[in-house]
């Protein structure tokens, strides 16, 4: 049962990801990205990360992808499907990712991870909230500052002057 779910989700993720990078229509790519993000959220649930799954859906699917679609729509007259969508180096890139994957796979399988067979906390929301407000309060504050800066920066960069 578990294994079946994992393989289904994995198949969805990889397929949709491949389509994201290879579809001619950038808008379709964005849609595929949404699908991919959903599948990843599902994967989080299998990993007992319920809060993260919710955040994934909210932020990625709800915010980032919508932003992407906005950008696609703004620039849509230049993103016609007739023009070439891939640059001149797909073959070298393919070679390199194959080698990279082989290396990574070797590394993963060769490394003996000390897996602890305990059952994780469920639900995680309260624990994450406590951790963010106690142990990780400083990174939390800093990252909120980063978000603010990114917000202001984006406005200034894209502003019509």
């Amino acid at each position: 049962m578990e294994t079946g779910i994992f393989y289904i989700l994995a198949a969805i993720i990889l397929t949709s990801a491949l389509m994201v990078v290879s579809l001619r229509n950038i808008f379709h790519s964005a849609l595929m990205l949404i699908l991919c993000f959903f599948a990843v959220a599902g994967l989080y649930i299998t990993l007992d990360a319920d809060f993260l799954a919710a955040v994934q859906v909210l932020i990625y699917v709800g915010a980032v992808t919508i932003l992407m679609i906005f950008a696609v729509m703004v620039t849509h007259q230049l993103t016609g499907t007739t023009m070439r969508q891939v640059n001149e180096q797909p073959i070298p890139a393919a070679l390199i990712i194959i080698v990279l994957f082989i290396l990574l796979a070797i590394a993963i399988t060769q490394t003996g991870f000390e897996v602890i067979g305990k059952f994780p906390l469920m639900p995680t929301v309260a624990a994450i909230g406590t951790a963010l407000m106690t142990v990780y309060v400083l990174p939390f504050e800093i990252v909120s500052l980063v978000l603010l800066v990114a917000l202001i920066g984006a406005i200034i960069i894209a502003r019509r002057d």
Binding site: N87, Q89, P92, I96, V99, L100, L103, A107
Partner: peptide, 21 residues
């Protein structure tokens, strides 16, 4: 072209890993 540069970066990463492994 930034993608060429990125390519070289990843090539470097791969070579480093190869060298290490």
């Amino acid at each position: 072209a930034v993608q060429n540069y990125a390519f070289v970066i990843f090539l470097g990463v791969v070579l480093l890993m190869l060298f290490k492994m």
